[in-house]
Amino acid sequence: MEIMRLVVTGPVGAGKSTFIRTVSEIEVVDTDRSATDETAELKKKTTVAFDFGRLQFGPETALHLYGTPGQSRFDFMWDILIRQAHAYVLLVAAHRPHEFRYARRIASFMNQRRNIPMIMGVTHVDSPEAWDPENIAIALGYLDPQTRPPIINVNANEEASVAQAIIALVQHSMQSCPT
């Protein structure tokens, strides 16, 4: 069996669990618990270990998706998950600018541990308060368009949109692969 493992990470409420649930063909293994911290203002449930989803696309080929918890107190899970990953997507909610720096912190955590392909998925782009992806990239510290990761808009609730994002990540991995 050949398996590619993708990690979906990002701040609380960026849409990581939804992203995986939308595209997984199996019922997602989730580890949701009722939120009691400031997360509760955003949503009722929060991931405390990881979400797991799968897409089998051949008899011997499958894509595994792992979603991380958003809060940094679970950074030991970030660590465990990223070490097994082939690539990752950083989800960022376009309408919550105060989280951009935190998103960048997650990315640098991942990048320090593993040098693997990544893309940035921007969610909630339809919100009236949404920032332009270009500006989000700058706010996240990706100043140079030449060196920054691919950025793609994602609607985590739509299968087509999530599939597009994964395509972008896979294609980015193909470019990064030593041929």
Partner: peptide, 30 residues
Amino acid sequence: TPDGLPLAATLPGSMDDERVSAMSAAMLSL
């Protein structure tokens, strides 16, 4: 709490409440 926050803790000095709590929650949920 089930989402990994300390309610009360009496831990060895070298351990961080918040981290221990998060780990406990992750472990239990798994």
